[in-house]
Write a protein that binds this DNA or RNA. Structure first.
Lengths: 119, 119
DNA sequence: AGTTGGGGTTTATCGAAATAGACCTAAGGG
DNA sequence: CCCTTAGGTCTATTTCGATAAACCCCAACT
């Protein structure tokens, strides 16, 4: 299950599905035409690839996701932190914040999340 | 100056420069051959592109960076958070941590970083 | 004068992501 | 019975990131 890597077009496509599943495939073609400017065959091509990779499924013209959005997000964020920050979350956070300032409230929220992940 | 986006090969290359600047271009060719398995022309091709984009510079065969590693890292992390998490750092953090647990010490470090960014 | 090595540029190749064209089959309506 | 439409496949085409081949200039050395 290591193919959680989605390319840009695939990711946008998957987002439409996460936001609308379960969705009929013909409706999906319409939606992609509208939101992404895709032709019918483009939609089916990408859909098939993601189905083959086990990310989505298409049964009786009903498309659903087999992989949760959070799993893909986690994969992406982990990949970035590993690639650019030695796997170090503090390094990531330092870079992300830079000179940026956050409000008291955001800070509390973040600390809460950290608290909950502390063993 | 909005072209801080580096592709994978470009990023690896830039890392070598950040780690070794200032570096003579011929030495850089050697280094890339060793570390990345690149031919001379590959090195010069990528070098030129990054110079044209203002990321690096090559003056009298001495290569240096014009953009700081931190700026690229900040751009990358910001881009990810915007693309996948609505620009919300808490959402990112939640996804990144998932079921993962962190040690007391890491938690302290993170909270410290947050503290410093709180206005 | 010929060769070697440093310092490059210009143009090409190659694979893969992104997108689409052409075509196919089955069901249903007039 | 023909035509349309839903639902889909298979095979291009286009684009671009990654990599390199071939070539060029010039200074130094022999």
């Amino acid at each position: 299950m290591e193919k959680l890597k989605l390319y840009d077009a695939e990711y946008k496509f998957a987002c439409l599905i996460w936001d609308n599943e379960p969705i009929n495939s013909t409706d999906l073609v319409r939606l992609c035409a509208e939101k992404l400017g895709w032709k019918k065959s483009t939609t089916y091509t990408v859909l098939k690839k993601l189905c083959d990779r086990g990310i989505l499924q298409n049964q009786d013209a009903v498309v659903t996701a087999r992989v949760k959005r959070e799993d893909v997000q986690k994969f992406e964020s982990t990949t970035l932190v590993e690639k650019s920050f030695d796997g170090s979350l503090p390094k990531f956070l330092t870079a992300f914040l830079g000179e940026r300032k956050i409000t008291q409230q955001e800070a509390e929220e973040l600390k809460q999340i950290i608290e909950e992940a502390t063993q």
